[in-house]
Design a protein around this nucleic acid. Structure first.
Lengths: 246, 246
DNA sequence: CCAAAAGTGTTCAGCGTACACCCATGT
DNA sequence: ACATGGGTGTACGCTGAACACTTTTGG
């Protein structure tokens, strides 16, 4: 194993979205600053997941690395959506204390490249860099560390735009899923209600969403048919269209 | 005037698009490395416009600054589209020589945030940082310095996506423009041909493209009516729609 | 009067939208 | 048997796409 050097001014932040069957969630980690003498905690709050990059990796690899460390998964949907470098982005009191405690220079201008990821599984490491990791419904996210509220907001905007353009909803679901689950994903992300019949007519036109012979089991109602996404078919049917809507 | 410090690892690159009535163009600057002893030029090629950021400005301000230096304009359409930080992005021989000649560290990992801009005017400074500036049709761009071909490609992709979503075509045209000019913009950027009647029906639905009483003058055919874009009307009629097309 | 681009309408097919009832399963 | 969510069809209006001729100007 070669010793790798961390770059101290380029970082990636990953906004990791998940779905619990009800709500859109985001993965956050606790940040507790403990006074080393008294052992008392000075403050506790939450951050997005992220890390500085290694000098020998691309920013995309760094983002995948963060995801892998948290989930053990390699094939996760990932999208670079925006970059953050405001001069004051790490200058709040708590942020400066945290950086100093962490042995980093609080005056160094740090650029962070924002990625958002869609995770089909709810199972994650409970601990990451010694910090607790947890899912939080997007609607219940409070004040975050650094500029992470802004990053989360931009990620949500990017996610909404993306899901209107490309079929990525299923990335938040198990390999086999019901159409009602998929519809819920769209409703939750776009904050709309959709008509069941119209939604299903639309799906029927998308040849890359393929019905299987399997059905739900153990539900106290008519079991739903399960569908799979075919990337093959999708890549073939994909074509650009002229819109300039709005 | 306060002395401002340039950050030596965060830069912005601006892909500045223009339209000459025929083709989509991009603004490029000459890069000639001259051997200081012999006075002979070692190589000449072209780069995008860009610059490192000042420690006291945001990346967006830095991009606007580059644009202002080149054009004297402040209200230019600008969009942050992607960030580039590949470890090898400045490591080609000529690039290393150039950086060394420029007094910069060729081994420093430099992150560049890519912006694309749309310019309605063809008039630009002819010289910028002592280098020649010129418009080049996108279709005739050869091999560029650094990773600038890649940046230009991503900018084109972003431009095509954007123009399908939002009415930005007129940003490449004078304040008053004809519908044929506008149609040409779309055809050139999207590499399609559009039907004149269908295009105009679509425009008619967009209340923010407003016909004036003025007409073209000095043309050897029926003069076209001129239109203006109303940002007011646009902001009011803007609303999201559910698409997930493709 | 000729060349050049402006401007205009209709038809057809596909899609978005609104809307209500029966079906299969577990308890 | 009943509660729960699954699954289906029709009618209307709008939009995209295909397509040809007349009008206005300068030269």
């Amino acid at each position: 194993m070669i010793k790798r050097t961390l770059n101290d001014y380029i970082s990636v932040d990953c906004v990791i979205f998940g779905y619990n069957g009800q709500e859109l969630q985001v993965l956050l980690v606790d940040r507790t600053l403990t006074d080393e003498k008294t052992g008392k905690s000075e403050f506790t709050d939450l951050t997005l997941t992220g890390n500085h990059i290694y000098e020998d990796e691309t920013i995309e690899q760094a983002a995948y690395r963060v995801l892998f460390d948290l989930t053990g998964l390699k094939n996760v949907f990932l999208d670079q959506f925006k970059t953050f470098a405001h001069p004051e982005r790490l200058k709040k009191d708590n942020d400066r204390k945290w950086l100093i405690h962490d042995g980093r220079d609080p005056n160094k201008r740090i650029v962070s490249i924002g990625y958002f990821a869609l995770l089909a599984t709810q199972s994650i490491t409970l601990e990451w860099k010694g910090r607790n990791v947890k899912w939080v419904p997007v609607s219940e996210v409070g004040e975050l560390a650094f500029d992470h509220n802004q990053i989360l907001n931009e990620a949500l905007i990017a996610l909404r735009n993306k899901i209107k353009q490309e079929p990525i909803g299923f990335e938040l679901l198990p390999e086999k899923f019901s159409l009602t689950q998929l519809q819920n994903i769209y409703e939750v992300i776009l904050s709309t209600e959709l008509d069941k019949r119209n939604f299903r007519k639309k799906i029927a036109r998308m040849k890359y969403l393929i019905p299987t012979d399997e059905k739900q089991t153990g539900v106290a109602h008519k079991p739903a048919r399960l569908y799979v996404f075919s990337r093959d078919v999708y890549e073939k049917t994909k074509k650009e269209l002229f819109d300039f809507t709005v």
